[in-house]
Design a protein around this nucleic acid. Structure first.
Length: 238
DNA sequence: CCAGACGTTGTT
DNA sequence: GTCTGG
DNA sequence: CCAGACGTTGTT
DNA sequence: GTCTGG
């Protein structure tokens, strides 16, 4: 699956890779992006240009009464995109790409024992994670309640080396399909599902369990780790 | 009809 | 909003 | 994804 | 155990 990721690619390289005219001023180098935080998402402007914006990670359906539901909507299964009420309309009309330099997966080594891994393209290029977005306004809020754009990352069954640590992986969209994927009016769900690919050419390394804590957001999170596997807090060994 | 869910991951 | 379950 | 809370009354 | 917050 994809519950944490990084975006440490320079703004210049991001702009070149994703054909952007500019990047948000608020964009910063991130090594530990967590759900509910703001993530960069690529969408099309009305004029058809690529635009990168910061959206809240965790899709809030437009009918939600409270924002908190979004914390559980961090991922959408590729296999059920057209069925799930929370995602169906976003899949039809509001797709996006979420640039990532890499992502984290946790391998389960025992009860409450997890080893985090950092996964990235071996060629150093960023990944275009497949995403959906939604627009929400708190129905109980005052008239000037801000509109919140939120997003989710699509997952697909893990393959290759990734499958040895976990059984889901984020889906990516190849560059050749970006323009169609982002096009609102393109509604051929079979064709869209066909654009969702498993990431290829990955390298994977066990990293410092420091990344477990979402408040740790620095390059130490992707530092290779050869120490012991870490027990998660809270529970005793059985 | 109304009430309640609407999601994914994991179960070494 | 829309669907499922009762 | 992991970490951390999980509650009310009443108020030095 | 389950939910919210980051």
């Amino acid at each position: 699956m994809c519950g944490r990721f990084t975006l440490s690619t320079s703004p210049e390289l991001l702009a070149a890779f994703f054909e952007l005219e500019s990047v948000p001023a608020a964009l910063t180098t991130r090594y530990n992006i967590a759900p509910t935080q703001r993530v960069s998402a690529l969408r099309l402007t009305h004029e058809g240009r690529h635009r990168l914006s910061l959206l809240r990670w965790g899709l809030i359906p437009h009918w939600a009464k409270e924002m908190s539901i979004g914390a559980r909507m961090l991922n959408a299964r590729r296999e059920t995109l057209t069925e799930k009420p929370a995602y169906r309309e976003a899949f039809r009309r509001r797709r996006c790409l979420i640039p990532a330099s890499g992502f984290y997966e946790w391998a389960k080594r025992g009860p409450n024992v997890r080893q985090p891994y950092y996964v990235a393209s071996s060629d150093g290029h960023p990944l275009a994670l497949a995403g959906l977005w939604e627009r929400w306004k708190d129905p109980a809020g005052p008239a000037d309640t801000p509109i919140i754009d939120s997003c989710t990352i699509i997952t697909t069954p893990a393959e290759g080396c990734l499958a040895t640590i976990h059984h889901r992986a984020p889906a990516v969209v190849p560059a050749s399909a970006w323009s169609t994927w982002l096009q609102r009016d393109f509604n051929d769900s079979d064709a869209l599902e066909g654009m969702l690919e498993h990431p290829a050419g990955l390298e994977m390394v066990a990293v410092n369990p420091r990344v477990n804590n979402a408040s740790h957001d620095d390059a130490d999170c992707i530092r290779p780790w050869t120490g012991e596997v870490q027990r998660l807090p809270g529970l005793e060994e059985p």
